[in-house]
Write a protein that binds this DNA or RNA. Sequence first.
DNA 1: ATATTGGTATGACAAATGTCATCCGCACGA
DNA 2: TCGTGCGGATGACATTTGTCATACCAATAT
Lengths: 201, 201
Amino acid sequence: MIRVLLAEDQAMVRGALGALLSLEDDIEIVAEVARGDAVVAAAQAAQPDVALLDIEMPGASGLDAAAELHAHLPACRIIILTTFGRPGYLRRAMASGVVGFLVKDAPATQLAAAIRRVTAGERVVDPALAMAALSEGENPLTDRERDVLAVAARGASIAEIAETLVLSEGTVRNYLSVAIQKLGAQNRIEAARIAEQKGWL
Amino acid sequence: MIRVLLAEDQAMVRGALGALLSLEDDIEIVAEVARGDAVVAAAQAAQPDVALLDIEMPGASGLDAAAELHAHLPACRIIILTTFGRPGYLRRAMASGVVGFLVKDAPATQLAAAIRRVTAGERVVDPALAMAALSEGENPLTDRERDVLAVAARGASIAEIAETLVLSEGTVRNYLSVAIQKLGAQNRIEAARIAEQKGWL
DNA sequence: ATATTGGTATGACAAATGTCATCCGCACGA
DNA sequence: TCGTGCGGATGACATTTGTCATACCAATAT
C-alpha cells in the first residue's frame, strides 16, 4: 500500500480527491490536512510515502510546506497538485525537493498514475508546463521589487505600501517603476497581474 | 436513482467529485461537462434530475448556464457548487432559478445530502452565506459603473477603458470616481477588489 | 406634467503616480 | 581592491488619476 497525505484547503475537493484515491487498491489516505502549516506535523505522525500538496492554502503555501517537509522527511515524495500552472511555481517547487507537479486541469486518472510513478522514483511534470518554465526564464524582479509589487497588487496606495514595508515613498515609486518596465506593463496594476500570472509574486 | 449532471472545468476536480458521488447508491452521474456553454445541450441529451454547476467555467459562467438551463429544463434542479461564497453570486443564482448553493469549503458529505434534499423539493443554502447576502444589501453600482470597473480590474488605463467601452475619458473618470466612493475604496484597484470579492463584478 | 435617475460629456483643479538623474552604503565576486 | 548590483533615499518633472461642478437628453416615477 502506498501511504498518501492529502493537503488541500477546500473540504469538498479534499473529500472528493480522497474518495477518488481510495478507489485504488494500492493507495491509502493516511492523513488529510487543510492548512499549509499543518503538513509537517501530520506527516511526522502518519509517515506517508507520498504527500499531495495544493499550493493555495491558508497558514503556509504548498510550496513553503514542501520545502519544510522535504527538510524533515526527505523520504517522503512530494507532489504539488494545483489550480494554476504558473511556470514560476514549478521552478520554486523543483528547488524545494518536489518530484511531481500536476495541474487540476489534467485528467483524474493521472493522479493515481502520478502517485505510483513518483513512488517508483520517477519525476512527474506536465511537459507543456515544463516547456513554459524553461522558455520564460527566471523571475526578473529583485526581492524588494517583488515585495512592493505584492503589496501594490492588493490595491494599496504608494503611501500605504511605504508604510507597510517601512520605506520612503520615493523608494516605493522607484521599485514600482522598475518593476513596471521589467514586466513590460503600463502601470502597476498590469505589472501585478503579469507577475501573479507567471507565479513570480 | 437520482440522475446528476456535473459541470466543472477542472478535470481532476470533476473526476474526483464524480468518484465521490458514484459511491452513493442512489446517485448516478449521467453527464459531465467542462464548459458553461455545453451545459444545456448535455442536459437535454441526458435529462438529469439535478445539475451541479461550478461558477468559474470557460464559455459561460455557471450562473449564466443556470439561467439558460432553468429556461429550457425547468424540471431540473440546479445546485451551484463554487469556490467563492460571494453574496452577489447567491443573489444572482436565486434569481436564475437555482435551488441549492454550496461552497467548496463545505464538508464533502454535504454534497450528496444537498442533492437528495433538492430532489425532495427543499432549498439548500449555506446559512452563513445567506446571512451575508441579506446583510450586505444590493449591488450599489449602476450597469455602466460595473462595466467600467470590470475593465479597470484587468489593469487597463483610463484611455484603454474609454476605448474599449466607446466612452470619453472624462466619462470613464466620472464612473470610476463614483464607483470608488460607493464602495468606500481609496482608488479603483481597491474598488475593483471589493466589487469582485462581493460578486458584484 | 414634473421631478428624478442614469448615461454621457466638458472643463478645471488637486492629488497620486510614473520617470529620471543622482546619491550613499554594503556585500560579494573577480 | 575594485567594480557591480541591490537596498535605500531625494528631488524634480510630466502624466495620470480622482474630484467636482455643470450640462444635456432619455426614460421613469410621482
